[in-house]
Structure formats: C-alpha cells, structure tokens
Amino acid sequence: MVVTDAAQSWWEESNDNILRMRETGWGGDEPLLSREMCELLDGVDETFAVTGANTPGWPNPFKDGPGPVEEAYERSSNPEKYRIVVARAQAWTQVLLDRGWAREASHADWALPPMEPGGTDTVLKPSADGAVPLVLTTHTPMDSDHPFNITIAAGDPAVRLDTLPDCACDGCDSGSARLLEYMDMLVLSVVDGSLDVDVGDDRYWVRTSFHVRGGGIQGPRARTAFTAAPWPPNWTARPVAPLPSLRG
C-alpha cells in the first residue's frame, strides 16, 4: 500500500507507510527515518525554497493517465527544468556547511568518475572519523537542447553513485518529486554513513539503506572499497541493504 499526499514530504510519507504496514502486518520491516534525519531533510527543504525559487517543480505527466508515446523517448521538450537538481545540490551544500559537519575542499581524485567528462566539482570533506567525502559535480549543458545534471559521488578516491537526471527525454519523465527524492536518498546515505561501496575490475556495488545498485563498469576506474561512517557526532547510521543473492 502506497500513500500519496501532495502536502507530505517524501520522508514523512515513507515513515507513515512503514507504520501503516506494521499495523496491518504487511511488511514494514525497514527502519523509520529518525527524527534527526527528518529535521535535516526539513532544513534542506527550507533552504531549497530559496536556492530553488527560480526552478519550479512539475508533476508526473503520466500519473493517472496513458503512458508515453514512442516519440516521447526521442525528444526533450523542456531540458531547462532540470536545473532543479543543481538548486537542490546547492541547498544540501549550504545546509551541510552551515551545520559544521564538513568543509569545502578544492579537489577530488576519482576511482569511478562521472560518465560525462568535465563538470564542476563541489567537494565536501567531513571532519568525523571514518566519514567519507561527498562530491557533487555539476554538468552544464553544451546548448539549450541539453539539460543540466548532477553526479553524486562519495569517497576518496570518489566513486560516482549516480547522475541525475540519467535521461531527460519526455518519455522517462516521472516528475520532479521522484527525481529530488532519489537525490536526497543518495546524499543522505553519504551523510548518514549508511553506504557501502565496492569497485572491482569489471563490476561495482553500491549499497545504501534504500537501494542496492550494481553492474558492469564502463570507462576508467580504479579498485576501491569502503564503508562510510556518519558525519554528525552521536549519530546512528541506518543499516545498509544486503547484497542480492546471485544464486539461480
């Protein structure tokens, strides 16, 4: 059962759904987002109201209606709207620096770099023992037909966790709320310390408390592995999801 309430943040909705599932006995085994995590996300939302003032959100164009036509996968009618991910990254950066959990560093070394070359790196280096840096790389479009995007990475050397949007075509558009929710989950996992990364010669795994992502590797890379620790003091990280079974 999934509850949808436009007035709710994704973290409030997530906790409400877990509690409802526990009441009915239909799942709900995953941990709730703690009060401290929700307060952190509330702070990011408040700052985003300023940094994102000129980057409005948009609904899922296919919710409660027909799916995209084939031609929608061949066009991007409004790539400018994806500047919203840059504004969200700015909000996260400001909040994390204001809380004193990290300082801004000038350079990132890479174990698994962004798929797109170039870009401007914002490197936040935490002060806590065992905590890993967060790297937010802004890719500016070459022209008005292409979107802004952000690569979220972690570690030293850094490993890309994902790039948002991964596709800006009209057919893949699921609305801004889902896009920002996924971005929040990735950044929160780095800060929370609920992140385990393993980059091998030809495959990689990224585990958070929300998702497990893995696959083959394309492009340059260097072997690395790490388990993150929380940025804030006196903070308990969420448990990371287990690796999927590879047995048939």
Rank of each mutant, 00 (worst) to 15 (best):
W101F: 09
W101Y: 09
W101A: 01
W101T: 06
W101K: 01
W101H: 01
W101S: 04
A102Q: 05
A102L: 11
A102D: 07
A102Y: 09
R103I: 03
E104N: 04
E104W: 04
E104C: 03
E104T: 03
A105Q: 06
A105C: 05
A105L: 12
A105G: 15
S106T: 13
S106R: 14
S106I: 07
S106Q: 14
S106W: 02
S106H: 14
S106A: 14
H107Y: 10
H107T: 14
H107Q: 13
H107V: 11
A108C: 12
A108E: 06
A108I: 07
D109H: 14
D109G: 11
D109F: 11
W110V: 12
W110Q: 13
A111Y: 10
A111K: 10
L112I: 05
L112F: 15
L112R: 12
P113S: 12
P114M: 02
P114C: 04
P114D: 02
P114V: 01
P114Q: 00
P114I: 00
M115H: 11
M115G: 14
M115Y: 04
M115L: 13
E116K: 14
E116R: 15
P117G: 08
P117L: 10
G118M: 05
G118S: 09
G119E: 13
G119A: 10
G119P: 11
T120P: 01
T120A: 14
T120H: 13
D121A: 15
D121W: 05
D121N: 06
D121T: 03
D121H: 06
T122R: 14
T122C: 13
T122G: 01
V123E: 07
V123P: 07
L124Q: 02
L124I: 05
L124D: 01
L124S: 05
K125H: 11
K125N: 09
K125Q: 15
P126K: 06
P126G: 08
P126H: 05
S127K: 04
S127A: 12
S127V: 12
S127L: 12
A128C: 03
D129I: 07
D129N: 10
D129S: 13
G130Y: 06
G130P: 02
G130S: 04
A131P: 01
A131Q: 02
A131V: 05
A131M: 00
V132F: 00
V132G: 00
P133D: 09
P133L: 02
P133G: 02
P133H: 05
P133N: 08
L134R: 06
L134P: 03
L134Q: 02
L134C: 01
L134I: 04
L134M: 10
L134S: 00
L134E: 04
V135S: 08
V135F: 09
L136S: 05
L136D: 03
T137F: 01
T137E: 07
T137G: 07
T138C: 07
